[in-house]
């Protein structure tokens, strides 16, 4: 093996080092890399660096994925798009487009329901005599809770749960169907009490957590 060939070989082996580190090389390539590591301090330094980088990539903390919220959102869009096509050809793009088209309309419709719910709570003499729209009023308490509601929950059920928890809708739904709630009267209801009441309403409230 001449010098030029030797150098070229080492350059090729340098390219394999990340996959030596993640332990996915085929046996023959692995054997060649191990021989390279024995004769080259440069290669050993590279492997030490790559191992450190790999560990940092693995350890990096990111926010939680959407989880069950994401699944609920997906199922809503699948429901809107209709059943699986017998032949999927050419359907995927069209249905995604349809789903995208309907998404803002669906969100707008949900907001309309929320606003209507706020009006109805007021008319029925519920907690808080002032109408509280999703856009909020000056001086209102900050949202302290996040909830999602069952997809088949009625306005009446949602209203009753919110009233019993002493909470009102501050804003939402988000694209994932999450509503932010505030306490109607923080002097008489604690966040823990409201949370416990919401969580006890398992058929209506599918998720409740502090904001």
């Amino acid at each position: 093996m001449n010098t030029d060939n030797g150098k070229k070989d080492d350059e090729d082996l340098d390219l394999l080092l990340p996959w030596y580190v993640n332990d996915t090389l085929e046996a023959e390539e692995r054997r060649q890399v191990e021989a390279y590591l024995e004769r080259s301090s440069h290669a050993r330094d590279e492997v030490a660096l790559l191992r450190a980088l790999r560990q940092q990539v693995k350890d990096e903390q990111i926010e939680n994925s959407p989880g069950e919220f994401g699944l609920q959102r997906l199922k809503r869009e699948i429901k809107q798009a209709g059943p699986q096509p017998g032949s999927a050809d050419k359907m995927t793009g069209r249905t995604v487009t349809v789903a995208r088209f309907w998404r803002p309309l669906a969100v707008a419709a949900c907001i309309a329901v929320v606003i209507q719910a706020g009006v109805m709570i007021s008319l029925t003499g519920g907690p808080g005599s002032d109408v509280e729209t999703a856009s909020g009023n000056a001086g209102l308490a900050a949202p302290v809770l996040q909830v999602t509601f069952a997809s088949d929950a009625t306005e009446l059920e949602i209203r009753e749960v919110l009233q019993s928890a002493g909470a009102s809708i501050a804003d939402g739904p988000t694209a994932l169907g999450i509503y932010n709630l505030r306490l109607v009267d923080a002097g008489t209801t604690t966040v823990e009490e409201a949370l416990a009441t919401l969580r006890a309403s398992g058929d209506v409230v599918t998720f409740a957590e502090r904001n």
Partner: peptide, 9 residues
């Protein structure tokens, strides 16, 4: 969401 929708379809 788009990926999972595509997987479904």
């Amino acid at each position: 969401n788009e990926v999972m929708f595509e997987v479904w379809r």
